[in-house]
């Protein structure tokens, strides 16, 4: 792969006490593509994601994002740096005391000096772009459906124009129609921001849904990447673990 590299994970080992969760992990995520990290429950997917976000520090090895070694950043710089990322959580993780609009406004209020009217305008645009209509703007998360919450969560993740979008289990446990909606949303987002650069990383154990939309797939097992290839190659992989996973 000769493309620009968004994230480079180099020889990363993570131990919690004696427990080795990530084991000499090496891999690079290309910029401006959709890459999915697959793996069984407990394989270390969330742990890997936290390293990419700089929420956890590797016991050994280094993680770089757009060429910047996260290990060289101090706490404040890391927080600053995290604004390159947008994230959609599995259950959206909307702030349940805030309306849909205020959830999207939250990062803008925290991190920009925009005027209130400008923030509201921007939030309206973001919400409309993920198909949330005006009448739902002032609803609380508890008054929204699961699918709507995800869309609001996506709008919030996009508010600060991130270069990298992370999706944690975007389709796990959803019905086929909502799964399709979420997939379309991920692809639309990827395409819409393609011009200024958008790297998508999906973490999932829902093979079927994610293979449809990914460019690359990494298979994580017991702390190492055992297979990393394009989707076509992945489907044809000889690795018995991968085959077992695909045919689950």
């Amino acid at each position: 792969m000769s493309e620009e590299i968004a994230i480079a994970v180099e020889d990363v080992t993570k131990k919690f006490g004696e427990l080795v969760i990530l084991n000499h992990l090496n891999f690079k995520i290309p910029a401006n593509k959709i890459t999915t990290i697959l793996g069984f429950s407990g394989a270390g997917k969330s742990t890997l994601m936290k390293h990419i976000l700089g929420l956890l520090k590797p016991t050994h090895g280094k993680v770089s994002v757009f060429g910047k070694d996260l290990g060289t950043l101090d706490e404040m710089e890391l927080r600053e740096f995290r604004r390159n990322f947008g994230m959609l959580f599995q259950y959206a993780a909307l702030f349940d005391s805030k309306t849909a609009l205020e959830n999207v406004a939250f990062p803008l209020r925290e991190f920009t000096k925009l005027k209130d009217s400008e923030i509201r305008e921007k939030c309206k645009d973001l919400l409309l772009s993920v198909n949330i209509q005006e009448e739902s703007f002032n609803k609380l998360p508890s008054e929204l459906s699961g699918g709507m919450r995800k869309r609001v969560g996506l709008a919030r993740g996009l508010a600060l124009s991130p270069k990298i979008m992370l999706y944690d289990e975007p389709t796990t446990g959803l019905d086929p129609i909502t799964t399709k909606m979420v997939n379309d949303l991920i692809v639309d987002t990827q395409n819409k921001y393609a011009e200024r650069g958008m790297t998508t990383i999906i973490i999932s154990h829902d093979v079927r849904a994610t293979l449809e939309i990914s460019d690359f797939v990494a298979f994580l097992d017991r702390g190492t990447i055992v297979e990393y290839s394009t989707v076509e190659e992945f489907r044809l992989s000889k690795n018995p673990l991968v085959q077992e996973f695909i045919n689950l």
Binding site: L53, R79, E80, R83
Partner: peptide
């Protein structure tokens, strides 16, 4: 509640302590 629904994580990911 914010902890179990990942709202606390959401804050951290946004760079808020």
């Amino acid at each position: 509640t914010m902890k179990v629904t990942e709202q606390v994580d959401a804050l951290e990911v946004m760079g808020i302590n």
